[in-house]
Each structure stands twice: as C-alpha cells, then as structure tokens.
Amino acid sequence: MYQLRSVIKQYRKGRETVHALAGVDLTIADGDRLVIQGPTGGGKSTLLQMLGGLDRPTSGSVELDGIDLARLSEARLTKVRSQSIGFVFQSFNLIPTLSAQENVETALVPLGVKASERRERAAEALKSVGLGERLGHLPSEMSGGQQQRVAIARALVKQPKVLLADEPTGNLDESMRDEIMDVLESMWKEHGLTFIMVTHDSSIAKKAPRLATIRKGALTVTEKAA
C-alpha cells in the first residue's frame, strides 16, 4: 500500500523554481487501479517518479508498505525497484541490441536468477502477452504495439507488487492503444497488482474507477461509484 504525505517536489529550471508537486497526500491500496491525468507539466510524471522510487521528494514521505522511499539509501531503493516495482514507459525503452527475450531477462538480472531460469521465465512472460513466437526478434523488427507488449512482459516477469505505466499508449495508434490497454487490464486482474497509470487519453481516464487529476502540482482524486 502506498501512503503519500505532504509530498513537495521543487526543482530549479534556469532561474525559476518549478513546484512540480505542491503538498500531495494520497493513499493507494494494494490491488488498486489509479489513473493520473492532467495537463503537460502539471506534475503527473513527477508523481509517478516518486511512486517508483526514481526520484526523491523535496519534503514529505512516500511510503510503500510502510517503508519511506524518500529516506532509503540508493542501494536499498534500487533493491525495492528491482523486486517490487515494474515500469512501462511511453517510448517502450527497450534495449535496441537485445532480443525480446533478452530484454525481458534484463529485469531478472538484478535478482540473481540463473540464466536458464531467466530464459524460461522471459519466454513465459512473452507468451502471456501474445509474443511467444517473437522471442528472438529485435525491437526494430517489431511494431510499436509489440514493443510495448515486450515492455509489459519485462515489467511483469519479476512478479512485482506495483505496476507503474507512464503514458503506455502515448506512442500508439488507436487500435494498438486498445490492444495494450486490454493486455494491461488483464494483467492487473490476473496478477492482483497495484496498477498506477499516467495518461493524457480522456477515453482511458473515463473508464478508470479512480482518477487522480493533477494541476500545477495539486492533486484531486475522484472515486467512481462501483
């Protein structure tokens, strides 16, 4: 479970101080699905970085299962990321020289999983996103939708507690978008993950049971009745 208390994030951009997050309080229960929406520069990606332990707040606390990520050492934070948090990025962020299977394996490397098991689990993960026939393909040999599926497989292969997705359909056309959203939704349901997604897409946001809107660093959460 996430518990964010009075999270402030400021950074310097030239001579100006940017208030990316202005005192955010947020609770996300285990297995929850939260969509974060807002205008560009509103602070949604910054909030996702705080949740993923990729950045630290200027003040406040970001607790995951009672551990304040803001106060963890770099080494422990790295360990938390490697074990508990899966990321899906807008630009897929696959290693261009590695095959689909090897890309998925990169998520298991920090966990010390042995090579044969790594290959096996990566192949399984790719099969689960419908890419069982594409294990040896390089990212450049796949469509955008397929690349994003590889990225989803990479995020889920380590069986994380949390899946963070930053504009996962931002670089895809409409048909691909629906396809990826279906995959993400089924994975969320299947794995019982806490699923947090940043999106610009209103059609996706509308379907979310819980919507967080962030404007100028301030967060408002809207709950939809079940």
Binding site: A75, K79, R81, S82, Q83, I95, R154
Partner: peptide, 12 residues
C-alpha cells in the same frame, strides 16, 4: 535512456 531504464529496472 537505455542506462536510465536499466537503473529503473533495478540494475546497480
């Protein structure tokens, strides 16, 4: 981006 991604995945 490549190295950042690896770090995000938990690479030291």
């Amino acid at each position: 981006r490549e190295f950042g991604t690896l770090k995000a995945l938990g690479w030291k």
